[in-house]
Design a protein around this nucleic acid. Structure first.
Length: 620
DNA sequence: CACGGCTGCCAC
DNA sequence: AAACGTGGCAGCCGTG
């Protein structure tokens, strides 16, 4: 993930009608060479799987294989469109530059405000990527796709992005290349360097996402089905509830003295509960839990079972698991903070209940690794708070905080820190906040400052320069109203509440977003190491990433390599910390690492919160 | 009947 | 411990 190399050569892939143009561009933006690939006779493919931006008629694979040996950075509009066909043809690439993902980051970057790049008029590069596979007749997105139009020249776009990211010539680290057309402004080179790293990491993430979709998460439908049958009863006839749900529902109805309550309708259920004399204001589980009534227990059980049935039951299995693999669609950068989102399949919310269906292939293992207390460690690192960094070198950071004497118990440390990062004010969070502020003024200052900026309507940035969106029009309108002396108090209160809410968002943004950057770097580095471990073997025949969830990865690996993989995962976590925050390892990014054959054997959430008993992994 | 808002719960 | 951050998604229910 060497984002900095000045000798990098970019190969821009520009698909057109019946041809693909490959343009080699130097790090200074100079076009070095270009070649046109045309549909070679005989191998012409059907256009039925035509995706916009993908090289459909032209076989790219040979050219990619050849140029890949030179270590180039592949540059294309959308990794999600262009890379999957290459993977299907057995081709992998080491590095890429995703123009659309980079564009979004750079256009929003507050650090680049005032540059010509930031001020340029909106164009189609700012539009969302076309959706792959939407190619039916009238709404053929390929035909409509601006990617194919003359207006969107990927070479030109790369040149613009390289220019805005290029270090100023005064920077001693800059190679004395021919004077680049200078240069947007007084953006400090340090910031440009961070943005270069962010763009490289985001692009690497796009490669990982495509590869994970290609490989899929190993999923045993038979195990899943057996699990459902055990918990819910046999699969019911379509339109009927499973037996165990009906049984619980009978108990609920008996206890409430009704025969016809629909437990799936909150309004109906609420009425029935109140008729039975229960003083509830909603049907939320946590509210019901407080009540002493014979209907409560079976109702809570019903809700639990119903959730499993509707969200991850047989329908889900039919829809999302094929040939022993679960293939969710990951949306890189889909969350404003830089976290990934997913589209369909609920990949970001796989309940622990069903994780036993995630099984390694015969002779293979999973290495499941999860960053321990990632966000507080990130806050310690980005704030440079020496006392909190000391706590962040402990195996368990919350114990580390207790050891500084700032708070009494691990629970106080945990909920205090979570509250500080989320903007909590009530309960334990609020109580210990002053203690944390006293002990860690710089760290708490970072989040307080971010909250204050957001509350004023300002924007904040992560460590690498991802910038929060401007407050919505709705908020601004409310603000305007609030400053109007005639505004009624209700409107004023609403405006204040909205401002505070935006402050909580920006408070969390800087930490969550920087944690996402660490995780991207971690995964990008790991991807490279896994490729080395795999040697010449194909992606699915060697250790490969199969799952990523904010601060957690799963690698599917031949069992014989599992120990090497576990070591690599830990090494990459350390390296990711250095990449972002520099050499000294002021904070240690610890992992818990498990070598398992079922995902369910990896950490379980314990009932009493976040067990301090969890093992702290192989780096011990 | 499609769509969107709302509720509630899952994940981190 | 408490109802405080980011999301996805199923089902209900009112609206056009």
């Amino acid at each position: 993930m060497s984002a900095e190399a000045t000798d990098t050569r970019y190969v821009v892939v520009a698909p057109g009608e019946g041809q693909v143009v490959l343009t080699v561009v130097g790090a200074d933006g100079t076009v070095l060479e270009s070649r046109t690939l045309t549909g070679s006779g005989g191998t012409e493919r059907s256009r039925t799987d035509h995706a916009p931006g993908a090289a459909t008629d032209v076989d790219l694979t040979a050219a990619v294989r050849e140029l890949e040996r030179d270590g180039v950075r592949w540059t294309w509009a959308d990794t999600a469109l262009t890379y999957p066909p290459l993977l299907a043809a057995g081709v992998r690439v080491a590095r890429c530059h995703d123009l659309r993902l980079a564009r979004r980051i750079l256009r929003n970057a507050a650090w680049l405000a005032g540059t010509p790049f930031a001020r340029a008029a909106h164009d189609a590069w700012d539009d969302p990527a076309p959706v792959p596979g939407t190619t039916d007749g009238l709404f053929d997105s390929a035909a409509l796709s601006p990617v194919r139009g003359p207006a969107l020249d990927p070479v030109h776009e790369l040149q613009r992005q390289l220019e805005v990211l290029r270090p100023a010539p005064s920077d001693p680290s800059t190679a004395p290349s021919s004077a680049p057309p200078q240069v947007p402004s007084q953006v400090p080179d340090d910031r440009r360097g961070r943005l270069r790293l962010l763009v490289a990491a985001e692009s690497a993430g796009a490669l990982v996402a495509a590869e994970m979709a290609f490989c899929g998460l190993p999923w045993r439908a038979d195990v899943h089905d057996a699990l459902l049958t055990t918990i819910l009863g046999p699969r019911p006839v379509e339109g009927y509830r499973p037996a165990m749900l009906e049984a619980k529902l009978d108990e609920v109805r008996a206890a409430l003295g009704t025969t016809d309550v629909n437990p799936d309708s909150p309004a109906d259920l609420l009425r029935a509960l109140r008729r039975a004399g229960l003083p509830v204001t909603s049907t939320r589980s946590w509210e019901l839990k407080e009540l002493d009534h014979p209907a409560v227990a079976p109702l809570l059980e019903y809700k639990k079972l119903a959730r499993l049935w509707t969200a991850n039951g047989w329908h889900w299995l039919d829809a999302w698991v094929r040939d022993g693999r679960f293939r969710p669609v990951y949306v890189v950068g889909g969350v404003v903070t830089g976290r990934w989102a997913s589209d369909g399949g609920g990949a970001l919310q796989l309940p622990h209940q069903v994780r036993d269906a995630v099984r390694a292939d015969d002779g293979w293992s999973f290495v499941v690794a999860d960053a321990a207390q990632l966000e507080p460690r990130i806050l310690a690192a980005m704030s440079g708070d020496p006392a909190m960094a000391r706590a962040g070198r402990a195996a368990d950071m919350y114990e580390g905080i207790v050891a500084t004497g700032a708070v009494e118990t691990r629970e106080h440390a945990k909920y205090g820190m979570l509250g500080a990062m989320y903007g909590g004010t009530q309960g334990v969070s609020g109580q210990v906040l002053p203690q944390l502020q006293r002990a860690f003024p710089r760290a708490l200052g970072v989040v307080e400052q971010a909250a204050a900026t957001g509350q004023r309507g300002g924007r904040v940035t992560t460590w690498l320069g991802r910038t929060s969106p401007p407050p919505g029009a709705q908020r601004s309108a409310a603000q305007g109203l609030a400053s109007d002396p005639d505004a009624d108090t209700a409107a004023t209160d609403r405006a204040r509440a909205q401002a505070r809410s935006w402050g909580r968002f920006t408070r969390n943004f800087v930490v969550q977003g920087t944690a996402a950057e660490w995780a991207l770097c971690w995964m990008a580095l790991l991807r490279g190491r896994l490729r080395e471990l795999g040697g010449e073997a194909a992606l699915t025949g060697s250790p490969h990433l199969v799952f990523f969830l904010h601060d957690e990865v799963i690698v599917h690996t031949p069992a014989a390599l599992a120990d090497d993989v576990a070591e690599a995962v830990v090494a990459c976590a350390v390296e990711a910390g250095r990449l972002l925050f520099g050499e000294p390892d002021a904070v240690e990014f610890r992992l818990s690492v498990a070598r398992v054959t079922s995902y369910a054997q990896a950490k379980q959430p314990s009932q009493d919160g976040d067990a301090a008993t969890r093992d702290q992994g192989v780096e011990g």
